[in-house]
Design a protein around this nucleic acid. Sequence first.
RNA 1: GUGGCUAUGGUGUAAUGGCAGCACGAGAGACUGUGGCUCUCUUAGAGCGGGUUCAAAUCCCGUUAGCCACCCCA
Length: 419
Amino acid sequence: MKYRRVRGTEDIFGTESEKWQQIDNIFKHICGLYGYSQIQTPVIEHSELFRRSIGEATDIVEKEIFQFQDRSGRDLSLRPEATASIIRAYLENSLYQSPGVVKLYYSGAMFRAERPQKGRKREFHQFGVEAIGSYGPELDCETIMLANRLLRSIGIEGSIIELNTLGCRKDKKKIAGYLKDIIGKNIPDLCPKCSDRFERNILRVLDCKNQACRDVLGNLNVDIKKAVCPDCINHFQELKRCLDGMGFQYRENNFLVRGLDYYSRTVFEVIHTGLGAQNAVGAGGRYDNLVEDMGGRPEGAVGFAFGLERLSFIAANLPSCSRMLDVFIVLQDYKLVGEALKEADFLRAENISVDIDFQGRSVKSQMRLANDRRARFVLIIGQEEAQKGVCSLKDMSTGEQKSLTRKDVFKTIKGGVNC
RNA sequence: GUGGCUAUGGUGUAAUGGCAGCACGAGAGACUGUGGCUCUCUUAGAGCGGGUUCAAAUCCCGUUAGCCACCCCA
């Protein structure tokens, strides 16, 4: 085998591809119910876009981005996530001119140069939504409810939504100071990575998986909400009240933080056991400063994204609408293939699915093929019949076979075709 | 990016330095114009590159890829 796919990429076909298609269709439909419309943005953007929005010091930008120069020296990157592109498109196309909250959903490939693992590819696919234009906690609530509905719509069970607040931008310094104070004395008890995080991005100490670190934080009773301003606390309380009012189940996680710089206030994560270490199937939150940071007028916004690979993995039993073929045309002699093409063309124009053997197989072999494709009918074209303008139609479920004219063939098939 | 494990027909696997087997799949056939079941035959394999050895799927080194954990994250 001479050519191989690039590390961390995947060919998706057959039943897996159909499954994706199904998830995609269901999701699109549901987003429609929530007033969302689709947006498609380019896979490549100016590198600066991601540096500014996601954050210079994040791992995604620092070491995972596929970055390159094009022939005229432009500094371009393959998108590692979609939110930055969507806000760019929102501003570039003046979507803020449309009335009300702007609700957009997207579905597409993202790229990160990570070491591949199950549920972590270098080219991966996300389905996500962004709602721009409100600071109200009710929008957070609706967005979280939407995430949950999407999961339920494809029969995913056992997923948990975790919730936290990161405070607003003004709180960031206070939170960092609070954490430095409380954790600072205990650095020797933390793992080496956390000592590093302590210096570079102190918030991330909170989601260290190391049990020793967790114990230290637990004993210190660390909770960033102690450093969050009253307005943000209020926003969080309102959100919880809203979710409770809807009878929605969630889990508050004081240690939940997000890796992208633009998040503020509400953050949430959908986790699912059965994904191994990559247990987040989806995540999102509020980003109230991003629109302004990117040159627009201040706008509150909330969004989330699901990883399609991970979703597909845990959506084990989607109802598969096994597509079967309506008609398979069997030829007595391959010379008759011209007749078959004509017949197929006619039937296909009538919305009937048809396939033909193009390999000149024996009749027996063609019959096997028809059976393999689960054809409802087999249309047998023989030499003499072709001259008389008739052919044999066999119902594969009953085994019944009739000699019919072309017109009658169409009638019979149409009667027996469902969906 | 770090560490560990793995790599045999299309797929799943067996053989502990001595003839690469099995199952599934695929193709042809078993009343020369008819499917599913059964049977027969056929098909095709050591990721790649070095090394050790009379002899390597098997041992060693490198490389590539996958998986697991870390990391990160959806």
